[in-house]
Design a protein around this nucleic acid. Structure first.
Length: 97
DNA sequence: GTTGAGCGTT
């Protein structure tokens, strides 16, 4: 499950975010968005967790929580469509509750 | 030695 984290502190790095999420479950990957020109963090990032249940728990626990002294916003990430051209075969993975 | 709503660079 992809998780979107916003309002991160500009000093917060991927390691801190990963540690915060891997407490609730296994973290597949962590990604902090940084500006390409300035190289500074844009203040938001993404977390990828293989287990959806743990991911939802992590979202519920870490949403509006405190990280690096700043209140963060954790939600489910938008469905990122990488390839729409080659994905027209059948369906996409749409898990519903 | 900055800023603060919102969805990414492989």
């Amino acid at each position: 499950m992809n998780i979107f984290i916003a309002k991160l502190d500009f000093n917060t790095q991927e390691d801190s975010l990963k540690e915060a999420f891997e407490v609730f479950g296994d973290v597949s990957s962590v990604k902090i968005i940084t500006d390409k020109f300035t190289g500074r963090s844009k203040g938001f990032g993404f977390i990828e967790m293989p287990d959806d249940d743990e991911a939802n728990s992590a979202i519920d626990k870490l949403n509006e929580s405190e990280l690096d002294g700043r209140t963060i916003v954790v939600k489910k990430a938008k469905p990122k469509e990488e390839n729409s051209r080659y994905n027209s075969r059948g369906n996409s993975n749409r898990k519903s509750y």
